[in-house]
Design a protein around this nucleic acid. Structure first.
Ligand SMILES: [Mn+2]
Ligand SMILES: [Mn+2]
Length: 303
DNA sequence: ACATATC
DNA sequence: GATATGTAATGCGCA
DNA sequence: TGCGCA
C-alpha cells in the first residue's frame, strides 16, 4: 500500500524509495491523486514489469497533473537513487543519453513519482537497441471517424497479419485508438521492421480506401478514415505501454483486450484506472505472449 | 520537479 | 528573493 | 536544403 502521509519513505524489497506530494490532485474532475496513480501501478506491477524490464524509458512528466504543463525527459535525473539502472544509448548527434530502466517495483514507483503518468519503453531491449522484439500498428481515427471504424480496421489488419502467418495482439491505446503488436523473432533491425509495416499499411490502405489511410501528412489524410500508422516502428520512438494510464479526463488505461471483445464492441472509456486492476487480476496478462520465447514470428518479406 | 540563470 | 527557462529528437519523403 | 511528422 502507498502510505497516507503527504511524503513518505517506502521500503520495497531491498530498496527504499522516496514518494512525494502524494495528495497532489492529478485528475481534478475525478478527484484522483498522485497516490492513487502510484497505487494503481503497484497493483498492476506484476503484469506490467516484465514488459518494461531491460528497456530504456522515455519519461513524459506531468508534475502538476493532467492539466499542468508536461515535458519529455530522456536523461535519468542526477538525483536518482544509486540502484536505478540506466541504459546508455549513443545518438547520431553524438549525445550519449542515460535512459532509466524499470527493473522492479521500486524503480517503477520511483519513475511514476517523477510525475510520469504514462510509461514509454523502447521496442528493443538495451543489449541491442536497434533490434526490436515486436512490430506494431498504431490505429488512430482521423477526424470524422468513430471507434466502430477503428475496431473494423483492427480486424482488417489482423486478418492480413494472420494471412501472413502471424497472430497479432490488440490493446486500447487509452487515447483514441488501438495498438496491434506482433512478437517477432529478434534479428531484423528497426528499419527492416519499419519497411515491412509500411508496405503492409500502404497495401491495406489501397485495398480499403474508404476505411483506411496510411498517409503520414495530416493534410493528406482523408476525412473519416482510420490511420494505420506504421511510422512509429522507428529507432528511438515509443508508444504508451500496456497498462499505462493516460493523462485524459477519465484516467483511461491502455488495456489488452481479446479479439472477441474488439468484435463485440468495446470502447476506450471502458478501461480506466479505477477498474483495470480488478480486470487484470481476474484475467491475468492477456499480452504475456508478447514476451514468450516460443510463438514468435519471423518478420516476413515485404509484402 | 528541480537546477540554473537573470533580474 | 522572485521569476523565467529547460528538461527529446530520428530520419524519411517531398517541395 | 528544410519542413512535416510522431
Ligand atoms: Mn495512437
Ligand atoms: Mn499515432
Amino acid at each position: 500500500m502507498i502510505p497516507e502521509a503527504e511524503n513518505a519513505t517506502l521500503g520495497v524489497g531491498r530498496r527504499t524509495v522516496q514518494l512525494t506530494n502524494l495528495d497532489k490532485v492529478f485528475w481534478p474532475e475525478l478527484g484522483l491523486t498522485k497516490r492513487d496513480l502510484l497505487q494503481y501501478y503497484a497493483d498492476v506491477s506484476s503484469f506490467l514489469l516484465p514488459h518494461l524490464r531491460d528497456r530504456a524509458m522515455v519519461m513524459k512528466r506531468y508534475p502538476n497533473g493532467i492539466h499542468g504543463k508536461c515535458f519529455f525527459m530522456k536523461r535519468t535525473p542526477p538525483s536518482r537513487p544509486e540502484w536505478i539502472e540506466t541504459c546508455d544509448i549513443m545518438h547520431k548527434s553524438g549525445n550519449l543519453i542515460d535512459f532509466p530502466m524499470v527493473q522492479d517495483l521500486a524503480s517503477l514507483l520511483w519513475l511514476v513519482n517523477l510525475g510520469c503518468i504514462d510509461l514509454n519503453q523502447w521496442y528493443a531491449r538495451c543489449d541491442d537497441v536497434d533490434r526490436p522484439d515486436y512490430l506494431h500498428f498504431d490505429l488512430d481515427p482521423v477526424e470524422g471517424a468513430d471507434f466502430v471504424k477503428v475496431r473494423e480496421t483492427a480486424t482488417v489488419v489482423r486478418d492480413a497479419l494472420v494471412a501472413l502467418g502471424m497472430e497479432p495482439l490488440v490493446k486500447t491505446s487509452g487515447s483514441k485508438g488501438l495498438h496491434l503488436y506482433v512478437p517477432i523473432v529478434r534479428g531484423p533491425v528497426q528499419k527492416e521492421v519499419w519497411r515491412f509495416a509500411k508496405a503492409l499499411a500502404k497495401l491495406l490502405a489501397q485495398e480499403h480506401p474508404a476505411l483506411i489511410t496510411a498517409e503520414y501528412r495530416i493534410a493528406d489524410r482523408p476525412h473519416g478514415r482510420v490511420l494505420v500508422d506504421y511510422n512509429q516502428n522507428a529507432w528511438g520512438r515509443t508508444l504508451a505501454s500496456l497498462y499505462s494510464v493516460r493523462p485524459t479526463d477519465r484516467a483511461t488505461v491502455s488495456t489488452p483486450v481479446t479479439w472477441e471483445e474488439v468484435e463485440r464492441g468495446i470502447e476506450i472509456a471502458d478501461f480506466r484506472m479505477q477498474n483495470v486492476p480488478q480486470r487484470v487480476s481476474k484475467l491475468g496478462d492477456l499480452w504475456a505472449r508478447l514476451l514468450a520465447p516460443r510463438g514468435r514470428f519471423p518478420l516476413p518479406e515485404v509484402p
